[in-house]
């Protein structure tokens, strides 16, 4: 899933400070799972904003709504009924959701209330960690199901650097060395031989380095 964290209150207040009425929109997908921008967080932020502005004597009117998916035009269309009369939209979805609202409602300012972080998985309650960088050419089949591009600080493709100590990365003892994990996994699977396989220099065009990406499925396009 896409993970996110709520922005600092001061920043959010800075965006909506000139507004009298705002539409605060959550998303029922990834940001709900990572507890950053679902229905519950929309309610909490709405109350927090109203109370914070009230301290300085300002009444901020907040309409709350949580869409099924904010990155999908079909669901964003639901905002048509709600958007008239508000000065701005404050979105608690990932950057995809914010941009979809901006694309659909060209005359309405849209502000992000969360910082979109990474594609990750839940390690345990309240902890999410990066697992994928969407490089467009998956190597997991060669690395025992552990991604060196997302999980090695240096995106090394063939083995660890000199900074790995006791299975931990040089950037922090809290970060596992991806190549240590790969080696351990290959040993457990009896696949040490795979480690000798050389991965050539990567073609990054399938990654963000090739510019903004798009998938076109002719079989599905209308």
């Amino acid at each position: 899933m896409i993970t996110a964290e709520r922005k600092p209150m001061e920043e959010i207040m800075g965006y909506v400070e000139p507004c009298q009425r705002i539409l605060l929109v959550g998303c029922n997908e990834c940001v709900t799972v990572c507890a950053a921008g679902g229905r519950k967080e929309v309610g909490l932020l709405s109350s927090a904003l109203q109370m914070a502005f009230m301290k300085s004597g300002k009444v901020l009117q907040v309409k709350e709504l949580t869409l099924e998916r904010q990155c999908d035009p079909e669901y964003v269309e639901e905002l048509v009924r709600e958007i008239d009369g508000v000065d701005a939209v404050l979105s608690m979805a990932c950057g995809c959701g914010v941009q979809e609202i901006a694309r659909r409602f060209r005359d309405k300012p849209v502000f992000p209330a969360v910082n979109t972080s990474f594609m990750g998985a839940s390690e345990r309650q309240g902890v999410w960690a990066e697992r994928c960088q969407g490089c467009g050419n998956c190597v997991l089949g060669l690395t025992g199901g552990i991604c060196p591009i997302a999980r090695c600080s240096k995106r090394l493709l063939n083995g660890p650097c000199g900074g790995s100590t006791g299975g931990k990365c040089e950037i922090s003892p809290d970060v596992d060395c991806a190549w240590h994990l790969i080696w351990e996994r290959m040993k457990a699977l009896g696949m040490e031989k795979s480690y000798e396989q050389v991965m050539p220099a990567r073609d990054w065009r399938t990654s963000r380095d090739g510019g903004p990406r798009k998938i076109v499925r002719e079989d599905l396009a209308l």
């Binding site: 240096k154 090394l156 083995g159 990365c169 040089e170 050389v198 050539p200």
Partner: peptide, 26 residues
């Protein structure tokens, strides 16, 4: 391979890491 940029004096920078050791040797 070089140390991570977080060890340096320009910690706001963006590491490149286009190649790795094998890629550069080749």
């Amino acid at each position: 391979p070089g140390e991570d940029v977080s060890f340096g004096d320009h910690i706001e920078t963006k590491a490149v890491n286009d190649l790795d050791e094998i890629g550069l040797l080749k």
